[in-house]
């Protein structure tokens, strides 16, 4: 039960959505794009969000694409995590997106919604952070295409009215060897998912022709990919133990300390995970 009213719009084009947004905004209706709605509904129920209007993006054709186009994987922002998972076009994204929430909810959570989520884990973004993803955004000035890292630091740096349309990833990233993991306070999460919960640590490692890329959620207050950390991981001159110590030094923010886990334990899990991942890539042919 959402204890207040809002207006619901389901436009059929991106331009319509954007102009609706600005219209409603000028009427002080605090409009929100509505993907799966899982966060908008659950936060509204608890008075943590108060949109007076929502704009459902699921009727926008561009947001519903999921296919390879000219050696690029194009994923519409309104595609649900389940649809991405079932398509199996990008196994790394399957895995990290496929460990968010639970199976039933994943059929409602959209990729765009997950990445813009207020809940700080946004695990689906990890796969995109390591694969030079580009984001296609529509706003009142038209369409733009930008590298994900240029508009993501601790969260998505979107202007009011910016509508995520699509994410694109070069095909070669979708076939690279990878390793991914998630742990919750209760223990390991295998894939397909078998432990529901927010991550203590959710991580992806992509092996780009011998160069490891990595991104993490749950460790710091926001998901991140750190080039500094990757430099350490890929440095062949340091011993595995030193790598772990140095890695901990180059995290972008203090380790999260919350009711699920202390920072010390998160660090312990992080070190274990790195060690496992390094082992994992040992001897892989490129």
């Amino acid at each position: 039960m959402i204890p207040f009213d809002f207006e619901y719009y389901k436009p059929t084009s991106a331009q319509e959505a954007v102009s609706l947004f600005h219209n409603l905004r000028s009427q002080e209706k605090n409009p929100m794009y509505y993907g799966g709605g899982t966060e908008i509904i659950s936060f509204s129920r608890l008075y943590q969000l108060f949109p007076k209007a929502v704009i459902d993006v699921k009727g926008i054709p561009e947001c519903n694409v999921l296919e390879f186009k000219n050696d690029k994987l194009v994923i519409g922002a309104a595609k649900t995590l389940s649809q991405v998972q079932e398509s199996n076009l990008f196994p790394l994204l399957n895995q990290c997106g496929g460990r968010v929430a639970d199976h039933t909810i994943r059929d409602k959570i959209t990729l765009g919604g997950n990445i813009c989520s207020r809940i700080p884990f946004r695990e689906a973004i990890l796969a995109l952070l390591v694969s030079d993803c580009e984001v296609i955004i529509e706003n009142k000035n038209g369409i733009r295409k930008v590298p994900l890292e240029s508009i993501y630091t601790e969260s998505m740096l979107l202007e009011p009215g910016d509508l995520l349309l699509q994410f694109t990833v070069e095909k070669n990233y979708t076939v690279m060897p990878f390793f991914s993991m998630k742990k919750t306070a209760d223990g390991d999460v295998d894939y397909p998912q078998d432990r529901i919960g927010y991550p203590l640590l959710s991580g992806v490692f992509l092996n780009n022709k011998g160069h490891i890329r990595a991104a993490f959620s749950g460790l710091c207050p926001y998901p991140f990919r750190s080039l500094k950390l990757e430099a350490v991981l890929n440095d062949t001159t340091v011993s595995p133990d030193e790598k772990l110590n140095e890695s901990v030094q180059c995290l972008p923010a203090p380790i999260l300390n919350d009711m699920d886990s202390s920072a010390q334990y998160r660090e312990f899990v992080f070190r274990n995970t790195l060690a496992g991942a390094l082992d994992n890539f040992e001897g892989v042919e490129f």
Binding site: A185, D186, D194, R195, I196, G197, Y198, M259, D260
Partner: peptide
């Protein structure tokens, strides 16, 4: 932790 989201019960298969 006043929700099932944060107060975890055993689930199927655990």
């Amino acid at each position: 932790n006043p929700q099932f989201r944060t107060y975890h019960l055993m689930r199927y298969g655990e």
